[in-house]
Amino acid sequence: MDKLSAAKKRILDYTKYEMLNKALEAFEDLGDDEELGPADWSTVKRYIASLNDLEGDPVHPHTESEADNNLAPSNLKDIRVRLLNGVQSAYWEMLDEGRISQSTTNLLMQSVDEAIDVAPHEPLCDWKGLKSNVHFPYYYKLLQTSMFPQKLITYFTVERLENACCVCAGFLQAHRIARRQLHEFIGDSVVASTVITESEAEGEEARMFLEDVRITFPQVLRVVKTRQVTYSVLNHLLDYLQSR
């Protein structure tokens, strides 16, 4: 209980490495100016612990020994939970940006919570909690060949498929973001590659659903994207007015 797993140690080492780089960047920008002159470097180091790791050249943790490249259950659990936490964080950002609604966010968040509960002994499975909300009724395709007015068909399908498309798009984007972040933190380790592969496999059904919609009802995806962009532009304008 008093030791870090290999996976957590890599994350901690990466965080320390990045903190040192960020501290150095900030000091380079602020350490000297023509009005006040230079800062006292020794005093700055005394107050900022991460600057005390400057002895020698900092080594990126991804270049160190790969002795921790094992698939121990504890390592897999740690990395799965790390990726799922990244997925949840991405969902919150999407909500703020207007890419997904509050109800869709709740649904996506619940699927992640359920997946975290079984992460110690099962591969990533947050898609399992979303499948019942993503389906393409067979009779929708028949509408394309019917005599109904196109506007009526579009309204009928958009209303019922929009939420499913938002779920799929949000799921795929969040996993893509989380995979990139995980690779940045862990590097090319076997355990990280295993979890990244699980994540990519999780998105296969979501990709197939969106492709099916794109082929059959492209106007549905256009409506979803148009609403997202409109909401985002309005948010940017609101932020601008509030800052003035």
Rank of each mutant, 00 (worst) to 15 (best):
A6R: 13
A7P: 00
R10F: 01
D13W: 00
L20E: 05
L30E: 12
L30I: 13
D32N: 15
G37H: 04
P38N: 07
S42F: 05
S42A: 13
S42V: 06
T43S: 14
S50P: 07
L54M: 08
E55Q: 10
G56I: 02
P58D: 01
H62F: 05
L71F: 04
N75M: 10
N75L: 11
D78E: 10
V81H: 01
L84G: 03
L84S: 02
G86T: 03
Q88S: 12
S103Y: 07
L107F: 02
V112Y: 03
V112W: 01
D113G: 05
I116N: 00
D117S: 07
A119I: 05
P123E: 14
C125Y: 00
D126G: 05
K128V: 13
K128H: 10
G129E: 14
F136H: 05
Y139N: 09
K141R: 15
L143M: 12
S146V: 04
M147I: 14
K151W: 14
K151S: 15
T157R: 01
L161K: 03
E162D: 12
C168D: 02
L172R: 08
H175D: 07
A178G: 03
H183L: 11
T194R: 11
T197V: 11
A201V: 08
L210E: 06
T216G: 04
L221R: 07
V229M: 09
L241A: 10
